[in-house]
Simulated scan of single mutants.
Amino acid sequence: MNGDQLREALRDEMRGVAAPPRPSTDAMLRTARRARNRRRAVQACAGSATAVLAVVGVVALATPDGGDRRPPAALPQAAPPPSADTSAEPMPTGPDGLPQEDRTARAGTRYDQAALLLDRLVTVVPAGYTAEKTVSTETGKETLGTHQADFTGRAGGVELWSYLASVDVAKGTWKGRLLTEVHTAGNLLPSEPCALAREFWGMGGECQPMTVGDATVGVVVRPGADDRFDQWAAYRHPDGVVVFVAQGAYDRQAPASPLPFTARDLAAVAVDERLHLR
């Protein structure tokens, strides 16, 4: 077979194969429209999310002074929010041998420590003031104060915890709250007394260092924009345990009434061994 015969044979073979269909213009347009619509939907969703975030930001900034104006009755979570990567910091093991569901201990040794702290807080209520029972929002039953234990992280392989206890107090028509929060040794809170006091719930305020025996206590005698409490004191024990004690009136519109403790007495409560949990 010469070259001409080979070319003629190939032409015959190609004529026997069906040509592929020509692309449909309508189909191409429909595909292009679908792609365009998908892009627009994604852009619209992104714009909506940005708008929502913007609205949230405006609401947060719309408070008169930028602070949290909740009354002392409102208790924030003692522990910081969980890390975005929860696998990086596993929860502690509960009394059932399983990891806790979240940072709050609801049974076991840590829970018992927080309950103990509440019992001890009640014993420091000064004469003339009574600890009041309140109705629990969880159980609907009357209870004398509240308590909570929260896992706050790890440092050097050691678990860090905070214990919180709070009790309503009254004297005549005056009603308010006493609260203490204790952080276990190894915590990363500031060491300087007033820096430590201002760190409490991030409330800042006007602080004065006060001496109680050999101890120096930071006492916020006047709150700043965030006035969930009227006064609070902070003390770091030599073993690293940090104790915060706070007091505040519920009715800020009522005529001024004396708080349960003077600023110096509040400093003394902060170093009181009854609140020194180890």
Rank of each mutant, 00 (worst) to 15 (best):
Q5T: 10
R7Q: 13
E8A: 14
R15V: 07
A18N: 13
P20K: 05
P21T: 08
P21N: 05
P23R: 13
S24P: 05
A27S: 13
M28N: 14
L29A: 15
R36I: 12
R36T: 13
R38V: 07
R40L: 11
A41E: 10
C45R: 11
G47S: 10
A54L: 13
V58Q: 13
V58G: 11
V58P: 05
A60I: 08
A60S: 11
A62Y: 04
T63F: 06
P64Q: 01
G66A: 05
G66N: 02
G67K: 02
G67E: 01
R70E: 10
P71Q: 13
P72G: 04
A73I: 11
A74L: 11
P76R: 11
Q77P: 10
P82I: 01
A84C: 04
D85C: 02
T86G: 09
E89F: 10
P92C: 03
P92T: 05
T93C: 07
G94Q: 07
D96K: 10
D96Y: 08
G97K: 08
E101W: 12
E101Y: 15
E101M: 14
R103S: 12
R103D: 12
T104K: 14
R106L: 12
R106W: 10
G108S: 04
Y111S: 13
Q113A: 15
Q113C: 12
A115V: 10
L118M: 06
D119C: 09
R120M: 07
V122K: 13
P126E: 07
P126V: 04
T134M: 12
V135P: 07
S136A: 09
T137H: 15
T137E: 15
T139I: 08
G140F: 01
T143Q: 15
L144E: 10
F151R: 04
T152S: 08
T152G: 05
R154D: 02
L160K: 06
L160G: 04
S162V: 12
A165Q: 00
S166Y: 02
S166T: 10
V167N: 00
A170Q: 05
K171C: 05
K171Q: 10
G172P: 01
G176A: 03
R177T: 06
H183K: 09
G186Y: 02
G186V: 00
G186F: 00
L188A: 14
L188M: 13
S191E: 14
L196V: 00
A197Q: 02
R198P: 00
E199F: 14
W201G: 14
W201R: 15
G202M: 04
G204S: 08
E206C: 06
C207V: 04
Q208N: 13
T211A: 10
V212C: 04
G213T: 03
D214M: 13
T216N: 06
V217Y: 00
V217C: 03
V221P: 02
R222Q: 09
R222I: 02
R222F: 00
P223F: 00
D227V: 11
D227C: 10
R228K: 09
R228E: 02
F229W: 07
F229K: 08
D230A: 08
Q231I: 06
Q231G: 01
Y235Q: 05
H237M: 11
H237E: 08
H237R: 14
P238Y: 01
V242Y: 02
F244M: 06
V245Y: 03
Y250E: 14
P255Q: 04
P258W: 07
P260V: 03
T262E: 03
T262W: 01
D265L: 08
L266W: 00
L266T: 01
A267H: 03
V269M: 03
V269G: 01
